[in-house]
Design a protein around this nucleic acid. Sequence first.
RNA 1: GGAGAGAUGGCCGAGUUGGCUGAAGGCGCUCCCCUGCUAAGGGAGUAUAGGGUUUAUAGCUCUAUCGAGGGUUCGAAUCCCUCUCUCUCCGCCA
Length: 427
Amino acid sequence: MLDPLLLRKDIQSVALQLKRRGFELDTKLFNELESKRKTLQSETEALQAQRNQSAKAIGQAKAQGEDVQPLLDAVANLSDELKFKQSGLNELQNQLNTYMLTLPNLPDESVPGGKTEDENIEISRWGDPTSFDFEPKDHVDLGADLGMVDFEVAAKISSSRFVVLHKDIARLQRALGQYMLDLHTTEHDYDEVYVPYLVNAESLYGTGQLPKFEEDQFATRTEPGLYLIPTAEVPVTNIVRDEILGDSVLPLKRTALTPCFRREAGSYGRDTRGMIRQHQFEKVELVQVVRPDESWDALEALTGHAEQVLQNLNLPYRKVCLCTGDLGFSSTKTYDLEVWLPGQSSYREISSCSNFLDFQARRLKTRWKNPKTGKNEFLHTLNGSGLALGRCLVAVMENYQMANGDIAIPDALQAYMRGQTIIKRDA
RNA sequence: GGAGAGAUGGCCGAGUUGGCUGAAGGCGCUCCCCUGCUAAGGGAGUAUAGGGUUUAUAGCUCUAUCGAGGGUUCGAAUCCCUCUCUCUCCGCCA
């Protein structure tokens, strides 16, 4: 959520910044609601003050045994009037609040302008696209040939955009997850957490998936409704919802391996082949909750932690800075890491690392007691994938494939595969 | 799933014949004083959010908040209703 004070004070500048990411702020609507709110709130509170005063007077008069009837008559219709104003005010505030919740974060000045992902800026490349002395296959064919990746049976037991993995490929995915968690907890100083995979609506409001992206979520039908998490970001970040943190626990760095569930409602024609875009996938998530003046450094560091995984697996990738039009709803700046996929001859997103500044913290009411000011202030939150396991599995299969269709196991993972070095067809 | 108990400020804990109770008391914390160390003692302060005023801060002022939401009433931490969560016992289960 944006700072309401900022909207009241300098709505034009907010509108200008939002326009950069293609969002039209209805300044007229906001100003109208806001000025109505102002007068209505003042009137309501004046009436409340009046009510409080007379109630007090009645109490005192009664204590002294005086006749209170005249006083009662004087406030006879006050309560009705108050009720009327109050319900009007409540409605208006709900309206205003709902509107505020639909406003995306302001893009940082350093974020390049642009409309689509084509205008994202490449920051750096690591490694060269893997070269083969044969025609490389994509992971779908590789998986089918190995007999370990089955989309048809997944469609039977669930629907499209699911997969069943067998034997060494299933195990390789598990190895990837274990490896990443161990790397982040031992080398990058994250604390591992295990979290619920079903969350309530409040949590989704907190991190920004609701109210705008309801159609992207899987929801249960029970009452109250719970949602399948679209990313571990939701439960991990919401741990600090409604909390005031002490300075000594900061920065908070947490990592979790969870499945992620996405309806992919708006992407019907896209990535229908293979494991790139699934309704269910595993992901190791990195979350940081930091002091406000540390978040920019933290973004660079966190992105580096995700990059380290790719480097250790020797997977070629590039780092891009998302342009304003491609930026996620809650983010002020995002780096994507795109891994090289020989099967598609292209770089594909495998990690997305974002700084949210206080946008989420304001929704979450996550604050700290700033020792310098002695006041409660909003913290900054960040997160990034470190990494998406499904896509990482794809990347390993395609980059490590051999001419005969076997797949070499990256050195870093062999310890997690009991020393196995190759995945063979008849495993 | 059944039966019962409970939810008050950073923590503990008063307060249910409704009326200066935003809320006693204690602990903790901050500042000051005293004490040559340690221990102890004395004093003061110590919730959050929002509105108005202000260039802004401070200040001043108003409002809200005793799990959440509604109701009764001139007036609710106290009475009524609904919900959520926690605890105990039983059942069931991994």
